[in-house]
């Protein structure tokens, strides 16, 4: 469980160039371990989707990666930096090692091609030696896996419901048996029943196939239920990272506390719902110091001056969690914590 599969090191992503640039992701360090579900939460504009697209270099212009490394650890080979791959090698890496289930299933499928064609495309690109017959069999198998009958193979996307389309996308993501699956708000467009059904199915598939998941959503309640660890993003930075249960029980960063306070508890005693005052920061004019300080109920002097370090706090379970808050000064900065890992 502790073996890393994807390590993000000081990833920086800008939109635009020069003075006009907006820093959407700043010095993000995050490690995905083999077999785990890592949740990534934050308000819209916190940089969580940018982070996911940035690490596979899928950001549309004017997105630019201005620094960082994304180290991928294949199962039986030496680790390598995804950001340093050539275009051709990156194409080979994509989907075979890291697949993505995108936000909004409506537009993820090409409207003019059959489902079978779009599934086949992946196999044709990555396994050119595969025969047409076995490609077809594989596509059917994948659809069956996500609960879609094989006779929908020749359907066009507009003939499927939103839930079915998202299942097709999940099936497509798993077709090459990748190590990592990134899910970007995979169920936001669906109704609540469908959401849980699909996520439940996904967790089951993960147990069977053993891939790791980065699960991005603004809905912290889903993460608490479905993920092993949770990272909270704010203003392009990770502000807290902890095991899901620990975060739920005892969030250290005031922003995490605010997020947790803004939806009803699933179990346990009732608590008062409270939103977070104010709105997410304008990325163009980020506050100095800790970017949350203008909204923070507990901000004090240094918050507006110094950017807090993401590191292990001095708490009893501090060894497995990190936080970037002056209320909980880092005992060991996160970046320094694991020098032996590479």
């Amino acid at each position: 469980m502790n073996e890393p599969v994807l390590e993000i090191r000081n990833l920086n992503v800008d939109y635009g160039l020069g003075d006009q640039a907006v820093h959407a992701v700043r010095d993000v360090n995050l490690t995905l371990h083999r077999g785990e579900v890592l949740g990534l939460a934050g308000e819209s504009g916190s940089g969580k989707s940018t982070l996911a697209y940035g690490l596979t270099r899928l950001l549309a212009p004017p997105g630019v990666i201005t620094g960082g490394e994304v180290i991928y650890h294949p199962e039986k080979a030496d680790p390598y930096d995804v950001l340093a791959l050539s275009d051709n090698n990156l194409r080979k890496f994509r989907w075979a090692e890291t697949a993505i289930v995108f936000q909004g299933a409506m537009n993820s499928l090409n409207p003019v091609h059959k489902i079978s064609t779009q599934l086949n495309d992946v196999l044709q690109a990555h396994e050119p030696k595969m025969s047409a017959h076995s490609r077809n069999a594989r596509c059917r198998e994948m659809l069956k896996l996500v609960g879609i009958s094989a006779d929908r193979m020749d359907a066009y996307p507009h003939q499927l419901s939103g839930g079915m389309r998202q299942r097709v996308m999940i099936g497509m993501a798993l077709i090459l048996q990748p190590q990592v699956v990134i899910m970007d708000e995979p169920t936001t467009a669906l109704d609540v029943v469908m959401q849980r059904q699909i996520l439940g199915q996904l967790i089951e598939l993960r147990e069977r196939l053993g891939f790791s998941v980065i699960f991005i959503t603004h809905d912290l309640s889903l993460l608490v239920e479905f993920s092993n660890r949770i990272a909270i993003m704010y203003g392009g930075r990770i502000v807290e990272e902890a095991p899901a249960a620990a975060l739920y029980r005892d969030s250290l960063h005031p922003y995490s506390a605010g997020l947790l306070g803004s939806f009803p508890a699933l179990r346990g005693p009732r608590r008062e719902l409270s939103g977070i005052p104010g709105s997410p920061p304008d990325l163009k004019g980020m506050p100095s110091g800790c970017s949350f300080h203008p909204r923070c109920p507990k901000a004090f002097d240094p918050c507006s001056e110094h950017i807090p370090v993401l590191g292990r706090p001095d708490t009893t379970d501090g060894s497995t969690r990190t936080v970037a808050c002056h209320l909980h000064p880092a005992q060991v900065p996160a970046g320094v914590s694991s020098p032996g890992e590479r």
Partner: peptide
């Protein structure tokens, strides 16, 4: 700049902005 292949300007793991531990 093109769709599908975000340019990578610098490929180092050095942090860009410096978070400081409190004095």
């Amino acid at each position: 700049m093109r769709v599908g292949f975000t340019p990578v300007l610098a490929n180092t793991a050095a942090p860009r902005t410096h978070a400081v531990p409190l004095p």
